[in-house]
């Protein structure tokens, strides 16, 4: 099975063709199996992230044919093109720099808490803890794209890109999910709930108004459980869809 792997070394991009040798006739390898075989055979220095091989750690996300997939649990197919996630700056081969996302949450995770730890969390809370932080949801998120002048990091001159070490200015579905978790946590005091909403608005929640919505790599209902919940809570602190359309038109 032939695939193309986009590699970046010391700033130089190249496309390498790799021919995967199936280990049994009926093997349907995952994308990660292909990368592991490439590393074990012809490309020993290939850089890519992986950890658990079981869709738990969330680090192996790459783009296949331009769409983010979780490499350890997505089947590879003839002719696939494997490249680094386009939504974050590439560092080497299939590795992207991830930390601009988490860093934007510094100072936003504090919650004033009640004393009683023995309170049952609502079901929605647990649905959100199934997020593995794979960042597949950054794909086509207009809020996240604000960090890169409305486009992708690859469209910008590296020198003009925002510094991930500072944490990105604008948010994304994952960061909103973390904030919504704080709001759903029964231990969070009212002030903590309000602060989380303020933070969501500060990160650009207005981008969600009228947005067709985000897709989660593991199937969390982001639109319903996260975006709608936050947008509803923000109420008229956000422009209405009509106002937004008007603004865009002008």
């Amino acid at each position: 099975m032939k695939v193309e792997i986009v590699t970046v070394r010391d700033g130089e991009e190249a496309v390498v063709e790799f021919d995967y040798a199936r280990r049994s006739e009926d093997e349907r390898p995952m994308v990660l199996d292909v990368l592991l075989q490439a590393q074990a055979t012809t490309m020993p220095d290939l850089a890519f992230r992986y950890g658990c091989r079981a869709r738990n750690c969330g680090v192996c996300t790459i783009d296949v044919n331009g769409r983010p997939i979780i490499a350890c649990r997505a089947r590879a197919r003839e002719g696939d093109r494997l490249s680094p996630m386009a939504t974050l700056p590439a560092v080497a081969d299939l590795v992207v720099r991830r930390d601009g996302i988490a860093r934007q949450m510094r100072g936003r995770l504090q919650t004033a808490q009640g004393n009683d730890l023995n309170v049952e969390a609502p079901e929605e809370y647990h649905e959100l803890t199934s997020c593995i932080e794979c960042y597949a949801c950054l794909n086509k998120c207009p809020m996240h794209m604000r960090n890169f002048e409305g486009g992708l990091p690859g469209d910008m001159d590296p020198a003009d890109r925002p510094d991930p070490a500072e944490g990105y200015r604008w948010g994304n579905p994952f960061s909103l999910l973390k904030l919504q978790m704080i709001r759903l946590d029964p231990l969070t005091a009212e002030s903590g709930r309000e602060a989380a909403l303020d933070n969501a608005i500060d990160l650009g929640l207005d981008a969600c108004v009228g947005c067709p919505g985000c897709k989660c790599g593991v199937g969390i209902d982001l639109k319903g459980l996260v975006v709608k919940a936050l947008v509803d809570a923000a109420g008229d602190r956000l422009p209405s869809p009509a106002e937004k359309a008007l603004k865009r038109a002008s």
Partner: peptide, 12 residues
Amino acid sequence: IGSAEAATGEST
């Protein structure tokens, strides 16, 4: 983690 429904990260 493992259920198939709507897991967009799992199909290429």
